[in-house]
């Protein structure tokens, strides 16, 4: 885990110096793409708490991205652009949705859990498509970028980039603390063997549900950023395909490592962009590459990294 921490700190440091470098290279647009990758890294990080540490395969995690984006979008459309309002509302909405759907979903396990989280994700998706006042199927442009106590913190690509980097770093620190706490150890214990945990005196349900709620709230935070990044809110943020991509990012990077899913998300978003430039049929080689990466890097990118380091 020490190796995982160092990898994350190096990653954050390298990413932090990229915007001026990219500008100097005459590729400022790459900073925008990088911001998008950081937003998905935050979402993948949140999914890792339940998927990697809690062994809960949620196939509806994109719903929380969407809830965050719509909280920002709906409030902005009504003249409330302050993050001091948008973030608490996004967190509360995601928290309530996670609490209710989690309390129901967590009564099942295995494939049933996957299917029921998918169903709740689709419910959220269709709810947003029915919001005709906010663009319905098509979504709508964000009325105004979010501000923080009147300050235009998201103004300009570089500022927005550093804001997303700060959110990612905070989410990582927060989740890192939680996974190493008493709570985190119980959560990981339920992943290892729920029956053993029950025999010790732990009822897994409450711990799992708490993790599910925390995870949803962090993803909603990423959703607020996503709405600002695209300057648009759309139901497509919460499609089941997006939920699948988030799972792929976590698996690609290495489940239960926190650093891995961040790496996975960066690799996923950047590879997607690169391949899309080469060919319009980029999804085919891209899908194959993800499958191969997961198959041949046991433990994902993080696993491959720790093995090469171990060999030295």
């Amino acid at each position: 885990m020490i190796g995982s921490d160092r990898a994350m700190l190096i990653l954050l440091a390298v990413v932090a110096v990229l915007p001026p470098v990219l500008s100097a290279l005459g590729e400022p647009f790459l900073t925008v793409i990088l911001s998008r990758a950081l937003i998905f890294a935050t979402a993948a990080l949140s999914l890792d708490l339940i998927l990697g540490f809690g062994a809960m395969v949620s196939f509806g995690h994109a719903a929380y991205l969407g809830i965050g984006a719509y909280a920002a979008g709906i409030l902005a459309a009504n003249g409330l652009t302050g993050l001091e309002v948008q973030v608490p509302v996004a967190l509360a909405a995601a928290g309530v949705f996670a609490l209710v759907t989690g309390a129901i979903s967590l009564r099942t396990s295995g494939v049933h859990f996957i299917m029921i989280t998918l169903a709740f994700g689709q419910m959220a998706f269709f709810l947003m498509t029915s919001l005709s006042a906010y663009g319905g199927d098509d979504g709508q442009a964000l009325a105004a970028p979010s501000t923080l106590f009147g300050i235009a913190v998201f103004d300009g690509a570089a500022r927005f980039f550093y804001a997303t980097l700060a959110v990612l770093a905070l989410a990582w620190l927060g989740l890192r603390t939680i996974t190493r706490s008493r709570f985190g150890r119980v959560l990981a214990g339920t992943r290892e063997d729920p029956a053993r945990m029950q025999a010790m005196g732990f009822s897994p349900f409450g711990y799992r549900l708490t993790a599910y709620v925390i995870s949803g709230m962090v993803a909603a935070l990423a959703g607020v950023l996503l709405a600002n990044h695209a300057a648009y809110i759309s139901p497509s943020y919460m499609s089941w395909a997006r939920s699948g991509e988030l799972i792929a990012m976590v698996a690609l990077g290495g489940m239960g490592t926190l650093t891995g899913p961040v790496l996975g998300a960066l690799a996923f978003v950047l590879a997607e962009e690169a391949l899309a430039k080469l060919t319009t049929h980029w999804r085919l080689p891209f899908g194959a590459a993800v499958v191969l990466a997961v198959l041949f890097t046991r433990g994902g990118l993080m696993g491959a990294l720790s093995r090469t380091r171990g060999r030295k």
Binding site: T177, I178, S181, R182, F183, V186, F202, G206, T210
Partner: peptide
């Protein structure tokens, strides 16, 4: 309680 989120459990 095991609903404690901050202190590293490995150091208890």
């Amino acid at each position: 309680s095991s609903f404690r989120f901050l202190r590293p459990v490995a150091r208890e």
